[in-house]
Amino acid sequence: MNLLEAAAVFAAGVAAGGINTVVGSGSLITFPTLVTLGFPPVVANVSNNIGLVPGSATGAYGYRAELEGQRGRLLRLGSASMLGALIGGLLLLGLPAEAFQVIVVALIALALVLVVVQPRLQAWVKRRREADGEGEHGPHGGPLLWIAVLLAGMYGGYFGAAQGIVLIAILGIALADDLQRVNAAKNVLSAIVNGSAAVLFITLSIVSDTVIDWWAVLMIALGSTVGGLLGAKVGRRIPPPVLRGVIVVVGLVAIVNLVR
Rank of each mutant, 00 (worst) to 15 (best):
V9C: 03
A11Y: 06
A12H: 09
A12M: 08
V14G: 05
T21P: 00
T21I: 01
I29S: 07
T30G: 08
P32T: 03
L34F: 13
L34A: 14
T36R: 12
G38Y: 14
F39H: 11
P40E: 08
A44V: 06
A44I: 06
A44S: 05
V46W: 04
N49E: 09
L52H: 09
P54C: 14
S56V: 05
T58S: 12
G59M: 08
G62Y: 02
A65F: 13
L67G: 03
E68F: 13
L75V: 05
R76Y: 10
A80Q: 03
M82K: 12
M82V: 15
L83Y: 10
G84Q: 13
L90E: 09
L91A: 05
L92Y: 10
G94I: 07
A97K: 12
A97G: 10
Q101N: 15
V102E: 07
I103E: 00
V105N: 08
I108T: 08
A109Q: 01
L110S: 12
L112H: 05
V113A: 03
L114S: 11
V115S: 07
V115A: 01
V117C: 03
P119Y: 04
Q122W: 04
Q122M: 06
A123L: 07
R127L: 04
A131E: 09
E134R: 15
G138V: 04
P139W: 09
H140Q: 15
G142H: 07
L144V: 11
L144R: 15
L145M: 02
L145D: 01
W146T: 00
V149I: 14
G153C: 00
G157L: 13
A161D: 06
L167Y: 00
L167E: 00
L167G: 01
I170D: 09
I170Q: 07
I170S: 06
L171A: 11
G172V: 03
A176Q: 08
A176Y: 11
D178W: 11
L179H: 01
Q180G: 05
Q180F: 11
R181A: 04
A184N: 02
K186V: 04
K186M: 07
L189E: 05
L189D: 06
S190H: 09
V193S: 05
N194S: 03
V199Q: 07
L200I: 07
F201I: 00
D209I: 15
I212R: 03
D213F: 11
W215Y: 12
A216Q: 04
A221C: 10
L222Y: 13
G227V: 02
G227I: 03
G228M: 13
A232K: 03
V234Y: 12
R236G: 02
R236M: 10
P240R: 10
V242S: 08
L243K: 09
G245Y: 01
G245P: 02
V246H: 03
I247Y: 01
I247M: 14
V249S: 05
V250C: 15
G251E: 09
G251I: 15
I255C: 02
V259S: 06
